[in-house]
Design a binder for these strands. Sequence first.
DNA 1: TACTACACTGTTCCGAGCAA
DNA 2: TTGCTCGGAACAGTGTAGTA
Length: 422
Amino acid sequence: MFRSAEKRPPEQKSYIETKIGRLPREWDIARLGDVTEPTAPIRYGVVQIGPDTPDGVPIVPIKHIQRIGDAVLHRASPKIEAKYKNSRVKGGDVLLSVKGTVGEVGVVPDGFEGNIAREIARIRPQASIDQHFLSLQLQAPQTQKRIDNLVVGSTRLEFSIHAVRDFVVAVPPLPEQRKIAEILRTWDEALEKLNALRAAKSRQLDGLAAKLIHDDQVERFHLREFLKESSTRNRDEQVQRVLSVTNSAGFVLAEEQFAHRVASASLSNYKIVRWGQYAYNPSRINVGSIARLDDWGEGALSPMYVVFQVKGGLDADFFGHWLRSAEARQRIALAAQGSVRETVSFGDLGSILVPVPTIERQQAIAKGLNAAQAEINLLDDEIKAVTRQKRGLMQKLLTGEWRVEVDTVEIPTNTKEAEHAG
DNA sequence: TACTACACTGTTCCGAGCAA
DNA sequence: TTGCTCGGAACAGTGTAGTA
């Protein structure tokens, strides 16, 4: 990806201890308040944004802080926004979330004109500071740790605007800032490409699954003929691993989903789910809360879940691919009964018609779709690895531990080294 | 067993009040 | 008056527990 370049050992450079750690002697440290344009001091945004107004001024919320140019933003009426004219943003401003979700960072794209929500602080760097470098410096793992230590509040986390102004960052000479930002941008571009490729592969898989599974020539049968409910209870509490099924990640450990253990004191009434079995929450299945247990041998599930397994005549992988299809989601939604919460009992699920070709055909289809899924899984692994590499590089470059020459880039040829640094 | 009410955590929106 | 902070309300996504 890069031209290899000479790497100079850190001990050959001159370093000094600062209050934010060991830095190269020629680097400065500076309060954010001191590297901000004097005409646009750090401040947060619109307190009460009011109703959405078609011709109003776009207001950037935390959730869109990293994709301001792409997102559809709430627009405040010009009259309301005018009261907060001091927090208007323009291209090149660095934004930092300071309330609720603290530490999210974004850079306002060129040409954008609008304002920010009050959960965001605007930092307009002086000409001596590269905005992309500052953005990266604020995102760096070591900086985020320092921000975490300054955050106050229990129910609602907050990074006080005073603390933001007093927050100290490492500042190399401008050419070095730009070079570091340029290097790390290369990693961002690689991640963007990988994510785009993954999205394309995923769409390809959906299309292939729809084509192979939903064949009008194939006879359909009720799911009840192929599914068997399992209501084994954890009577002697031999299973202590409590699981949940989430919309986004399938089976997860309950303690990872929640900040504390929310399971009942006794797990004796919990249902046991075993490897290869499916489970779903009848009140959430219409939003995707259904999954197959692949990552653990067994687990205990809240009694509200329905646990079942696929039996002979229907290939388990074929069923899994059908379950992810748009048609399956539609049929499950239709099966949901109208009530306060739309629920799908095991009986309702069994009444859904599913196309069932011969078992040999099912296995052949599942094999092809599994291969496509495996490609996506590989891309996921690669995305995780590149993300780790980028974090490692940020750790090294943004502390000056690895130096860059303005003319020649000092990048380790072995990216594993960067990965391990993170 | 199915359904419903309610609890809890985390996030975001926004009204109100305090201090400079 | 303005800047800032506190904290209630609403909402999403998960859970437990009671009752028919």
